[in-house]
C-alpha cells in the first residue's frame, strides 16, 4: 500500500486525507421501508493513496462518496477531510461525476479554467495551467471547441482536466468511465494515473469493474451492505500492462475480491427493514 514515497512521508506529519468514524446513513424509501446505506463504517485514507471502491449496486459505494463530497450528511459519526470536519462540498474535494458536467455553454478552455477563475487565480496562471492540462489529456487542439463538438471519450478527458485544474488535494470519482469502450477506458486510465502521480493527490474512485480497480488502485475496498468487507493493498508495478494484470499476484487479488462480492450478494435482502 505505501509504495509511494510521498505517501509515506506525508502520512507521518499530516492528518489523513479522508477519515470516517462510525458513520451511518439511513434512507427512507417511498415504500415505507428504510435502507441502511452505510452502517457504522470507519475508514482512513492517507494522502497520496489511490483507493478504488468496489461493491454491488446500491450497497453504499456512492453514498460513501457523497458523504465525503459533502452532498450528504451522516446520520451518525463524523466525516473529516485533511483533519477538518466536512461541511458541504468545497474545492478541496474535487468530484468527477458519472454524468457529464462540462458546462455546455463554455468552450473547453473556459471549462478547464472555471474552477480557478471562481477561486480568483490570476489570468496568466490560469492560462498556463489549462494549457498544461489540455496537453496532458490530449485536447490542445480542441481548446476553443464547444463540448458538443467533442466525442464521448474526449468529453470525459475534458471533464477530468477541468477538475484536476482546480488542484484539489482529494479527488472523488463516481464511476466516471461507465459506458465507454475498452480502448477509450485504457486511454483514460493512463490519463488519470499520470495526472495523479504528477499532482500527488488522493483519489477515491468508485467503480464496479474489478479490472479497472486493479489497473488503477494502490488500495481496493469492497463495500457491501454498508460496510467495508474487504480492504486490500495493490502493490503491482506501474505501468500496469496486460501481463501485470494477468500475473499471479493480480489474479490472487481478483479471486479474493470476487469471493467477498459473492458473499455480499448472499445477504443482500437483510438490509431492508419493512415499514412499521
Amino acid at each position: 500500500m505505501k509504495d509511494l514515497p510521498h505517501a509515506r512521508e506525508s502520512a507521518a506529519s499530516t492528518p489523513p486525507a479522508i477519515a470516517l468514524r462510525d458513520v451511518s446513513k439511513v434512507f427512507e424509501l417511498e415504500t415505507g421501508e428504510t435502507l441502511t446505506a452505510v452502517s457504522d463504517l470507519s475508514l482512513t485514507i492517507e494522502p497520496g493513496e489511490f483507493v478504488c471502491v468496489l461493491g454491488p449496486s446500491g450497497h453504499g459505494k456512492s453514498t460513501l462518496l457523497n458523504l465525503v463530497a459533502g452532498f450528504l450528511e451522516p446520520d451518525a459519526g463524523s466525516v473529516e477531510a485533511h483533519g477538518d470536519p466536512v461541511k458541504g462540498p468545497g474545492p478541496d474535494r474535487g468530484v468527477i461525476f458519472q454524468r457529464d458536467t462540462l458546462f455546455l455553454w463554455k468552450r473547453v478552455r473556459d471549462n478547464i479554467e472555471y474552477g480557478m477563475k471562481v477561486r480568483g487565480v490570476p489570468k496568466a496562471e490560469r492560462t498556463a495551467k489549462a494549457d498544461e492540462l489540455m496537453e496532458a489529456v490530449g485536447l490542445t487542439k480542441f481548446a476553443s471547441s464547444w463540448p458538443r463538438q467533442l466525442s464521448g471519450g474526449m468529453r470525459r478527458r475534458a471533464a477530468i482536466a477541468a477538475v484536476f485544474a482546480n488542484e484539489p488535494p482529494v479527488l472523488l470519482m463516481d464511476e466516471p468511465f461507465v459506458g465507454l469502450d475498452y480502448a477509450r477506458r485504457a486511454v483514460l486510465h493512463d490519463v488519470v494515473t499520470s495526472l495523479w502521480s504528477r499532482e500527488n493527490n488522493t483519489i477515491f474512485f468508485v467503480t464496479h469493474d474489478i479490472d479497472e480497480a486493479l489497473a488503477l488502485a494502490t488500495r481496493v475496498l469492497v463495500v457491501a451492505n454498508g460496510s467495508v468487507v474487504y480492504d486490500v493493498s495493490v502493490d503491482l508495478p506501474r505501468p500496469r500492462g496486460t501481463d501485470t494484470l494477468n500475473g499471479p499476484e493480480a489474479l490472487e487479488i481478483r479471486k479474493s475480491i470476487l469471493r467477498h462480492l459473492d458473499e455480499a450478494m448472499a445477504v443482500e435482502e437483510e438490509r431492508f427493514t419493512p415499514a412499521g
Partner: peptide
C-alpha cells in the same frame, strides 16, 4: 446536475 459540480469547484 450542475450546482453540485460548481460547488465542488468552489463557486
Amino acid at each position: 446536475h450542475y450546482a453540485n459540480y460548481a460547488a465542488c469547484l468552489g463557486a
